[in-house]
Computed example of a mutant assay.
Amino acid sequence: MGEVNRVIVIGWDGAGSFVQSSETPQLDAFFRRGASSLTTQAVMPTISAQCWGSMFYGVTPDKHQLDNTRAEKERFPDGSPYTSVFKLARQQWPDAKLASFSSWEPINYGIIETSAGVHTVSMPDAELAAAAGAYIQLNPDVKLMFVHFDLPDAGGHRHGYNTPGQWEVIAQTDRHVAIIMQAIEEAGLLQDSLIIQLTDHGGGGAAPTDHGSDHPLDLTIFWSCAGPGIEPGSEVPAELGLIDTAAVIAHALGLMPSDSWDAKLPLGLFK
């Protein structure tokens, strides 16, 4: 495995596995560059705070206790026994650049610990793409970065999940992500970055314009990564779930996983 000097995670909120029905040339090319899956499983309940919380903290929702209401109204308690991958990185590198650009603001203040010292930016998707791209070019030494786009989920709530209306905003998100990928390439960071693209949940299972259930449409997501040690055009190991993303990030950055994590590194992801 080659050296990974940074990890960049790009989240498409509420996109499920519906990217396969949308025009996503950027994501299609990314799948060819690395490992991908359209059958990865999220966590229950399939709601944003619970799912993103499990991705960051590597534990199940019953442990991190995050939900949308709590994330919107409170800050994640620094006294929690659970440690996010951001906090893990901060403990390893006190002066490292860590960043989160999120169109859903509660991720930046209600899910990520304040004590992790993460540079946070919240703005609408189109503006966010430009701002995140500019940040990457100005800060090539960033160690861990998360970028979150909300349009796919908003489109699902408005038009119905896995419908032409949502497919159009998924295609729009692909164009936003292309801006970030271009910035990474222009900054000369492709070769030593692990880039993860994924979503938190799907929708339309129990209700056409909602999510939260254990229906396969709600629970099944896409997950993909590319970078050093990842075989181009390969499949993500079947046992990898959304919750294991924290372990993948930690492994790539050479961090010791938290003892409290449920997250596991799946065998065979890195060659």
Results as ranks from 00 to 15, higher is better:
Glu3Tyr: 09
Val4Ile: 15
Asn5Gly: 12
Arg6Lys: 13
Ile8Gly: 04
Ile8Ser: 06
Asp13Cys: 02
Gln20Ile: 12
Ser21Trp: 10
Thr24Tyr: 04
Arg32Ala: 15
Ala42Asp: 02
Pro45Trp: 09
Phe56Arg: 06
Leu66Gln: 06
Asn68Pro: 02
Arg70Cys: 03
Ala71Gln: 02
Lys73Glu: 12
Glu74Val: 00
Gly79Val: 00
Gly79Phe: 03
Tyr82Ala: 02
Thr83Trp: 01
Leu88Phe: 01
Leu88Arg: 11
Gln92Met: 14
Trp93Gly: 05
Ala99Gly: 07
Ala99Trp: 04
Ser103Glu: 08
Ile107Gly: 01
Gly110Ile: 10
Ile111Gly: 01
Glu113Asn: 03
Ser115Pro: 00
Thr120Ser: 08
Pro124Lys: 07
Glu127Gln: 14
Ala134Lys: 09
Ile136Ala: 02
Pro140His: 00
Lys143Arg: 15
Leu144Ser: 05
Asp153Gln: 13
Gly156Ile: 12
Trp167Arg: 12
Trp167Ile: 08
Val169Leu: 12
Val177Pro: 00
Glu185Asn: 11
Glu186Cys: 00
Ala187Val: 03
Gln191Cys: 03
Gln197Phe: 13
Thr199Asn: 12
Asp200Gly: 12
Asp200Gln: 11
His201Met: 10
Gly204Glu: 12
Ile221Ser: 06
Gly227Ile: 07
Gly241Leu: 05
Asp244Ser: 07
Leu255Glu: 08
Pro257Met: 04
Ser258Trp: 03
Asp262Phe: 04
Ala263Thr: 11
Lys271Tyr: 14
